[in-house]
Design a protein around this nucleic acid. Sequence first.
DNA 1: TAAATATATGAATGTGTGTTCATATATAGA
DNA 2: TCTATATATGAACACACATTCATATATTTA
Lengths: 115, 115
Amino acid sequence: MAMCERTCIHQDVVEAVRERMPPDARLDDVAELFKVFGDTTRIKIVSALFESEMCVCDIACLLQMSQSAISHQLRVLKQAGLVKYVRQGKTVYYSLNDDHIKRIFDQGYSHVTEE
Amino acid sequence: MAMCERTCIHQDVVEAVRERMPPDARLDDVAELFKVFGDTTRIKIVSALFESEMCVCDIACLLQMSQSAISHQLRVLKQAGLVKYVRQGKTVYYSLNDDHIKRIFDQGYSHVTEE
DNA sequence: TAAATATATGAATGTGTGTTCATATATAGA
DNA sequence: TCTATATATGAACACACATTCATATATTTA
């Protein structure tokens, strides 16, 4: 049985880190946010919306995926507060909610390209 | 049956967006990276390592989780190239690989706090 | 060399999630 | 009002994944 599951090795370090870390709830929110970006389909939708607002139909066409799959993922993006939409007759146009999203994406993008 | 799964509504928009979007492989990499950040345990480990390098034992102690669970997640972080480690006797000290990680985290963090 | 400790890892399990399929809803036009 | 089209959504299914459990490996110390 492992000793270290009950006792820390460096109590002082652990205490210091614990005090300086953000509260758990905050970190959970951060993970939740990144999780939304952590899907191929969703990141492609976001990437597309950087260029132009788009209707569901066109996104499905662009990504060669079913309309249903796109709708479901747009729902996730909407619930995360990343996209907004405007209805115009039969079609619904989606766009990004703010440009902070672009900054988050760019940081990730530059990380994978700088290698 | 939906018409829009075969035909785009705005061909011109779709074409323009397609041309300006990054290649699929790149976007897959970006999603993969964000997915690593998109887990509560991993984001807490990363957040802890911002403060100090730490051994597996202390991380487990800090997060009140099993040593095994932490080891498994450190493996994921290592495979993603986010952490490095140094062995010192029986203990292994993990630390962040570069400070780009901090910038990515900060963007996500400020997004969830600015609400 | 034997015992203790820190870490790593494979298998199993339960849970989460993305897509599909079928269908419902909403709007426009005939 | 009936039909066509664009979108939304619930259920089902397959797959991914995080943790646990048992155990292996590595290193130190007695």
